[in-house]
């Protein structure tokens, strides 16, 4: 039982990252029918921007210019990095995807891969291959709950992720911008004719997705504080799986699938050797997709329209 609860908590943290990254994929895919393969690398860029912001703020605090307690630095780091990274996302859309909007979808997908490589190697060129350590903004405290160990970091990561997911859900459900996004996901040929600006909505989608990826990146860096320019690739792929599994454009689906992915990986890892972990985990997902080809909450008819 203890073992199970401990793994449950491990899986909640691990799933949070997948869920947050998957949201960005899912939104772009839902609205623009585009596989944004650079998204994993935007997650990486977010972590590095977070590193820069956190280091800068900590230095300012240490000099006494800004007497900030650590938790304020943490909140500021997340907010500022989300803001800055959303511009990176908008830039990627503007430069990489907008000129190719009428091009075949395969070209746009390849563009994503190339932008990803540019972000990775650009980072490598600027900062070098040396790994960096993310500053420890919150001192890790471990709580012993009857043999199950929880840290303040884990709680923070899961809570912040859930808050961000709920906020996104509310934004899409309740605001006019959200409504425009939903409408665009329904049909992006006709809706612009009704006066909804496609380019603005596309930018907004990328900004939101990238902001969430940045939050995921920073929390990832807090949990696993060793960063290198290639961390985004593998998590990008896996989150992409979660996005598809969740169903096109579905916020709820992406979150659920992200957590499910985390659970499968952790629990398979707990009872099987790691060399077969991904093999088993992704075979399970393949099986789910065989029976539910449109994912958990995907809508079959709209996907048929354009693919």
């Amino acid at each position: 039982m203890q073992l199970f609860l401990q793994n449950l908590i491990n899986a909640l943290q691990w799933g949070s990252f997948y869920a947050l990254i998957a949201l960005g994929y899912s939104m772009v895919y839902g609205i623009l029918m585009l596989f944004n393969f650079a998204h994993g690398d935007i997650f990486m860029v977010g972590a590095y921007i977070g590193f820069g912001v956190a280091t800068g703020l900590t230095a300012l605090a240490a000099m006494g210019t800004l007497a900030l307690p650590n938790w304020v630095i943490l909140v500021l780091t997340i907010l500022i990095s989300m803001f800055l990274t959303s511009f990176v996302g908008m830039l990627v859309e503007r430069i990489g995807y907008r000129p190719l909007r009428e091009a075949p979808r395969a070209s746009a997908a390849i563009t994503g891969l190339m932008i990803g490589i540019i972000l990775e190697t650009g980072n490598l060129a600027i900062l070098g291959a040396e790994r960096i350590r993310f500053p420890s903004l919150i001192k890790s405290t471990t709580y012993d709950l009857g043999g199950v160990f929880v840290t303040n970091k884990k709680i923070m990561i899961v809570v912040v992720s859930l808050v961000l997911m709920l906020a996104l859900n509310e934004f899409i459900r309740r605001t006019r911008w959200g409504m425009a996004m939903r409408a665009m996901a329904f049909d992006y040929v006709v809706i612009p004719l009704m006066g909804v600006p496609l380019n603005t909505i596309a930018s907004l989608t990328f900004a939101l997705g990238s902001g969430l990826a940045a939050a995921a990146g920073i929390m990832f860096a807090i949990a696993y504080p060793v960063l290198d320019p290639y961390i985004g690739i593998i998590y990008g792929w896996k989150a992409f799986v979660a996005a598809i599994l969740g169903g096109r454009g579905s916020v709820k689906g992406a979150c659920l699938a992200g957590f499910l992915l985390g659970f499968i990986e952790i629990f398979v890892g707990a009872y099987m050797p790691s060399s077969v972990r991904d093999l088993i985990a992704y075979s399970i997902i393949l099986l789910i997709l065989v029976f539910r080809p449109h994912g958990f909450f995907g809508e079959p008819h709209s996907a048929k329209l354009r693919l």
Binding site: N10, W14, I231, E265, I266, F267, A270
Partner: peptide, 8 residues
């Protein structure tokens, strides 16, 4: 990067 299941 995550070793939580092994470490558990």
């Amino acid at each position: 990067a995550d070793f939580s299941s092994q470490l558990t």
